[in-house]
């Protein structure tokens, strides 16, 4: 199989998975909307960032999307709890949706979930770069010591 053919087949596979997930989510949401419409509507509205992230994140493992989903869901949990406690109907849903700790909290949590991998990546990169810098400095010191002991010719490539 050529590389081109493999790429095409991978694309087809991924093209097959995405609609399946998407439709799975749709069916699940539909079921939830059918069984528990207020909760379903709250989930649909509250998890929009997670859905967007899942649609946009094409990276292997979809790390960012998953983090966004976890944070998004964690941010939405207080609103779900409030819906279930205050009355599971559309009026209560409408009242909850108007509160500051409902959708804004979920969306803010999603934003945190989106930013956290980037920030952590930068932090890890900083650590790795610091370690690499240290190694390079040690090597440069070694080369300088060799130059001092044996002259600059020691650094010239052999003819």
């Amino acid at each position: 199989m050529t590389a081109k053919a493999a790429k095409r087949s991978a694309k087809a596979a991924s093209a097959g998975r995405a609609p399946l997930g998407f439709w799975g989510l749709g069916v699940a949401t539909g079921a939830v909307l059918g069984i528990a419409l207020p909760t379903g509507l709250l989930l649909a509205a509250g998890l929009l960032p997670a859905a967007l992230a899942l649609a946009v994140d094409r990276s292997a493992g979809r790390g960012t999307a998953r983090t966004v989903l976890a944070f998004n869901l964690a941010g939405l949990l207080p609103a779900i709890r409030a819906l279930w406690r205050e009355g599971h109907d559309l009026m209560t849903l409408a009242a909850i949706l108007g509160r500051l700790e409902a959708l804004p909290l979920a969306y803010a949590a999603a934003v945190i979930g989106f930013l956290l991998p980037q920030v952590l990546g930068w932090a890890v990169l900083a650590v790795l770069e610091a370690r690499a810098y240290g190694a390079v400095q040690a090597l440069e010191r070694r080369r300088a010591a060799l130059r001092e002991a044996w002259g600059v010719e020691v650094d010239r490539p052999p003819p």
Binding site: G63, R66, T67, G113, P117, L120, G121, W122, L125
Partner: peptide, 13 residues
């Protein structure tokens, strides 16, 4: 770094 950051972020999430 991105991979490790993503993992940590997932775990944190």
């Amino acid at each position: 770094a991105a991979r490790i950051g993503g993992r940590i972020a997932q775990g944190t999430g």
